[in-house]
Design a protein around this nucleic acid. Structure first.
Lengths: 139, 139
DNA sequence: ATACTTGCAAATACTTTGCACTCCG
DNA sequence: CGGAGTGCAAAGTATTTGCAAGTAT
């Protein structure tokens, strides 16, 4: 059993939530898909009710298990930094593909600086770069 | 008449759109409010039909006049970099306030680097830092 | 046992569409 | 004038809620 799965169950329990089948499946799909829309999740979990999916998404957001991003035109969900390595995104404006960028220590440091300068305590952050991917930029 | 307003009208005309009252008002509210939700715009423009507001938001997004951000829990709209100085955002997780960060040349440079490294042509980007604002971090 | 969850159905809220009329250029 | 835009009403989607039955601890 993966470390993340254990941690996931722990977070639920520690906050008075039960570990249930729909929640385990939801978590599993989030692990597989990197970024997903709500409606993708609803169809992936089609043998459960959509109300259940919505309710659990909300709980997961509240517990900081997932974060909601605006990538391209739609809002999407992904596991938060606690459950996968911190990273940023690039969205191609032509083909719509979302690419994951590996962490860049220099940027992370800059973000710390900026926050400190504004007297703000940063907890997490997200960066999206929109542009043309290596394929689309050629055409 | 502001430079931005002129440019706004120009963008509409150049793309075969008319300059109409609802569009001017919409643009005006965007200038006043920095970031707004769709429903705020609908109530600000309540003497126009909401269908009109939605249609124009869509057109503005298509023309790159506004961008849609995920700040905190809801998606919000703001004028794009063409119509106001480029900047980033900090959202306070406690009080929900959104603060605008002034541009930081070092970060902008880093973003260029990151994109180049991934063979990606960056067009624009957005960064949101979530944490505690200078007031909430004290309590 | 009991408090939390689910599934279902109904209610809300949000967004899009069709069409006749109006307005911008 | 002619095409683009608006308002209105209705249709679609998306999301939330109430409640009885089911399930995790």
């Amino acid at each position: 059993m993966s470390v993340e799965l254990d941690r996931f169950k722990q977070v639920l329990k520690n906050n008075g939530h039960f570990v249930t089948k729909p929640r385990l499946r939801l978590f599993g799909h989030l692990q597989n898909h990197k970024v997903v829309t709500v409606s993708q999740l609803i169809s992936l979990l089609s043998h459960h009710d959509q109300a259940t999916v919505y309710r659990n998404i909300k709980i997961f957001e509240g517990l900081g298990i997932i974060s909601r991003l605006q990538l391209g035109w739609h809002s999407k969900l992904e596991l938060s930094d606690t459950f996968q390595h911190h990273h940023h995104h690039m969205t191609c404006l032509k083909c719509g593909k979302v690419t994951v960028l590996n962490e860049d220590p220099a940027i992370e440091k800059q973000i710390e600086h900026m926050s400190a300068r504004s007297n703000f305590k940063p907890i997490h952050h997200q960066l999206e770069i929109r542009g043309l991917c290596h394929i689309c930029k050629k055409t």
